[in-house]
Design a protein around this nucleic acid. Structure first.
Length: 597
RNA sequence: GGCCCGUUGGUCAAGAGGUUAAGACAUCGCCCUUUCACGGCGGAAUCGCGAGUUCGAUUCUCGCACGGGUCACCA
């Protein structure tokens, strides 16, 4: 269907291309490549596209040929015509999507390209950094750094009731620990401070008053009782509860009289009552709402303080934020934000709304449900890098097949077009797997350092050769908290059942296990220098003399020295690790246990 | 309830009218091995439903179902 749209592509460098829209992406890509840039849907090269709809392929073809024959001057004239007619082209669905969207897309890109990217993370200090928040911060950071831009931290602390002592430190610490270093923020300042919302309170009312002057906002003197009453009636009659516009059209004299009389007031945004408001989201595309569904929301409260929605817009603008990245719970209020930007005549930011991180199909991950926060995950033994890597992957997918990325690699790889529209369920198994991958990448020294506290939980023995133990542990550790269970047999042999000696694949049973242990005992006692190699050759000579498969000897050894089915390493490794005396004692114990069976 | 958004294997997901519908985790089998793991190879498994447009629909349109969000002098 798209093939019957003819376009003229006017690039910023003046190049003109003519073709069908179905080869447009290839054209854009080629042109971008020529300029040494990269084409993606989120970051097309700077270009303007003008299109013309044809009834079918054949006419499109001939029209294309026709346009191609035009002189440059004639083409430019055509472009002018299209530009002037762009709104008329709205007639059909078809035109709206193809012409207008492209037009918008490209003009937005133009404005974007002239500004340096500035993103912000604006958390409320409620005492907890949950995974969804951290992901938002990460994306904001990545987008800024990817474009050589600025990442800003702003603390939104205007909600005194929810304020939690020390919460700001949690935010600082988490961002620092994960490497999401902000370029401007409360602690380090910056050109557009202050960066704590409660310290910016003076300015908002002034801005609201400007809106009153320009007719985009008005004073409202309705008290709580009246509002409640209106709402009750609306609910009873099944209408959406909304401000009824009682004060919307008060005359200037009436307003002045009430102000003089000291009647408490709020300032409300005056929403258009007809038409629609649309905005372009990088993730969700065009979102349109009917203006009549928009409530005349409060901008300034009775106490003179701004509401969150208002403060947010003013702050974002005054801080020069170019890209707003936030949860998609704001999707439906974004038209209101944009109306505010328009009323002020400010340039709108690019919106990037992210779907939430879920616990299951119906519930969000939340503090309330006691779901994991970043701190909890750390406490559970996950590595910071692995957490960041996994969180990045939750709702975003890289272009290639690799999934393991450090933060600098993520900056390289990150692209808004990879952000997914639908919610993602937090999958602990995948996090574990990624954590395991990071653990395997650790140097032996780093592994030892991180693993030691966990080893020491169940293995106090000072004589143990830690590097050897770690070498066995590292490839089989996915998460540090599973280490204690792995090494608990070292200090003391656990009670175990003789059933462990029976292993089908190893072809062992109670009888041959006993025989193997008995045969090994003198061989091991004869080992003078108790090293891995010497233990190995001692045991293998036993295997040879008995003429059995390796497992028939080595399996019983493993069981006897560890009392466990799964161990970090084989019989030889364990024996070498435990030392001569302990190994022999445990084998004797095994023999005794088997004889009494 | 109104409005907005979403729906590809168990999970994360690629895909952009014609594909044997990628890849990763999980799962199963085989190989390696001294158990488990690591590593290697392979299998099973997915387009929510119904119409429409089209020669052809996972892809476009509409409807439905299901799920989420939002409707405060909270942020």
């Amino acid at each position: 269907m798209k093939q019957d749209v003819v376009y003229i592509l006017e690039c910023i460098d003046g190049t003109l291309y003519t073709g069908w829209t179905n080869d447009l992406p290839a054209r854009l890509a080629a042109h971008a490549a020529k300029r040494g840039a990269k084409y993606t849907r989120a970051h097309p090269p700077k270009a303007l596209v003008y299109v013309e709809k044809m009834a079918d392929k054949r006419t499109a073809l001939s029209r294309e040929a026709q346009i191609k024959r035009l002189s440059r001057k004639q083409k430019l004239a055509l472009i002018e015509t299209y530009r002037a007619n762009i709104d008329k082209l709205h007639g059909s669905r078809y035109d709206k999507e193809d012409c207008y969207q492209l037009y918008r897309m490209e003009t937005e890109r133009l404005t974007m390209s002239t500004n340096k990217v500035r993103t912000r993370f604006a958390p409320s200090p409620t005492g907890y950094m949950h995974v969804g928040n951290l992901r938002t911060a990460l994306y904001a950071y990545l987008l800024a750094k990817k474009n050589d831009g600025t990442f800003i931290l702003r603390i939104e602390d205007t909600d005194r009731e929810r304020y939690v002592e020390g919460a700001v430190d949690i935010i600082y610490n988490t961002l620092r620990k994960t490497g999401l270093i902000w370029d401007e923020g409360p602690d380090i300042g910056g050109p557009v401070g202050p960066y704590v919302q409660s310290e910016r309170m003076g300015m908002f009312k002034e801005y609201a008053l400007k809106l009153v002057e320009s007719g985009h906002a008005y004073y409202c003197f309705c008290d709580k009782e009246r509002l409640d009453e209106v709402r009750t009636i609306q609910q009873a009659s099944g209408i959406a509860p909304r401000y009824d516009g009682h004060c919307r059209n008060l005359s200037p004299e009436e307003v002045q009289a009430k102000l003089d009389a000291g009647v408490p007031y709020v300032i409300r945004q005056k929403m258009p009552t007809t038409g629609t408001t649309s905005f372009e989201d990088e993730v969700y595309g065009t979102v349109t709402v009917e203006n009549e569904t928009l409530d005349d929301q409060i901008l300034i409260k009775t106490d003179g303080m701004p509401t969150y929605n208002f403060a947010n817009v003013v702050d974002d603008h005054t801080m020069g934020i170019t890209h707003v990245i936030r949860g998609n719970e704001y999707l439906s209020s974004t038209p209101k934000y944009n109306l505010l930007y328009e009323a002020f005549g400010w340039e709108k930011p690019v919106y990037i709304h992210c779907a939430p991180v879920m616990k299951n199909h119906t519930e969000k991950l939340s503090k309330r449900n006691g779901d994991a926060s970043f701190e909890d995950l750390l406490a559970k033994g996950y590595l910071t890098e692995a957490i960041i890597n996994y969180i990045a992957l939750l709702g975003w997918s890289p272009k290639g097949e690799n999934e393991i990325f450090t933060l600098p690699e993520l900056i390289q790889e990150f692209d808004v077009s990879g952000i997914s529209k639908s919610p993602a369920i937090f999958d602990t198994q995948k996090l574990r797997a990624i954590n395991g991958a990071y653990i395997r990448k650790l140097s032996p020294e780093a592994f030892l350092e991180q693993a030691l506290p966990y080893i020491r939980q169940t293995c106090k023995s000072e004589s143990i050769d830690l590097p050897t133990l770690c070498a066995m542990l590292q490839p089989r550790t996915e998460i540090f908290t599973e280490i204690p269970d792995q090494v608990d047999f070292i200090d003391a042999l656990p009670e175990y059942s003789n059933d462990l000696y029976v292993h089908k694949k190893m072809k062992t049973n109670l009888e041959n296990s006993l025989a193997s242990l008995k045969a090994c005992l003198p061989a091991l006692e004869a080992v003078e220098d108790w090293t891995l190699d010497n233990v190995h050759s001692a045991l293998f000579s036993v295997i040879e003399s008995l003429g059995v498969k390796n497992g028939v000897v080595l399996w019983p050894i493993r069981v006897a020295v560890s009392g466990k089915q799964f161990t970090p390493g084989g019989g030889v490794d364990l024996a070498a690790l435990l030392g001569k005396e302990e190994t022999i004692a445990r084998i004797k114990k095994g023999i005794e246990q088997l004889e009494n069976a």
